[in-house]
Simulated assay, not measured.
Amino acid sequence: MKKVVRNAVLSFAIMIMTVGAAHAASVVQVLLWDKGANMAMPTDLAYGPPNLDMSKATMGIKATPATVKAGKVSFRVKNSSKDTVHEMIVMNPADPGKPLPYVTVENRVDEDRAGDKGEVSELDPGASGVLTVDLKAGRYVLVCNIPGHFAAGMWTEFIVKP
């Protein structure tokens, strides 16, 4: 009888761990960086055009890992800047690889038309934030949409696999 009870308890524990693992979120570390507020910002590094020279970027986003499985994804975002506010928005463009809709007079992406899935908004220098979203398989773009930052190269592609 003890063996039957022990086996039932072990089976139940394995079932709970399996269910828990299936619902656990993938965790992505996101670093928002810049070379300092005194650096001139380029304006021609927006996502979309081929053959961009990203070595000119004075700002950027690094996501680790850059690929996860579909489901709940937790983005742990850190603004490593010493003097500039940044944010991170998850965009799911309708046509990946093409330029995101841009509002030139505001120097920012049109979030509604670009497929905004959620954000960690306006982090002060050194601050952190977390965003957890349910993502389907596809190509996404993580952007900072503070005016001028996106066109200065502050974006990165992010892949969600089935």
Rank of each mutant, 00 (worst) to 15 (best):
A70S: 15
A40I: 05
T58S: 09
M154V: 07
I146Q: 11
A24E: 05
M154K: 04
A37R: 04
P49T: 07
E87W: 03
N79T: 08
M91S: 09
I159F: 10
K117R: 15
V141T: 10
L32D: 00
A63V: 10
P99H: 10
K82G: 14
L131W: 01
G115E: 10
I14R: 06
P162E: 15
V141N: 08
L131P: 01
A152P: 03
S26A: 15
Y140V: 08
G20K: 03
P101W: 03
C144F: 08
S128P: 06
M15W: 08
V109P: 01
E157A: 15
N145Q: 11
I61F: 07
L135P: 11
V4C: 00
R113E: 12
T84D: 02
A46V: 01
N7K: 04
V19R: 03
D83V: 06
L32C: 05
D34K: 02
K72V: 04
I14E: 02
A22F: 14
Q29A: 12
L123H: 06
V68A: 13
M41F: 14
E119C: 05
T132V: 10
K82F: 08
V143F: 06
D134C: 09
K3W: 01
G129Q: 07
Y47I: 09
K136H: 11
G129I: 05
N107M: 14
G129C: 09
L45R: 02
A137C: 12
L52C: 01
P65G: 12
K136F: 07
S121V: 13
L142Y: 05
P101G: 12
H149K: 11
R76M: 11
G148H: 12
K98H: 14
D116G: 08
E111G: 06
G36P: 02
M39V: 10
I159Y: 11
M59P: 00
M91V: 08
M54S: 08
P99M: 10
F12L: 14
A25H: 05
S11C: 13
S74R: 14
V19T: 07
E157F: 12
A127Y: 04
K78E: 09
L52E: 01
P93C: 11
I61W: 04
V77T: 02
V5K: 06
V73K: 09
D112C: 00
V160Q: 14
A13M: 12
S11G: 14
L123Y: 04
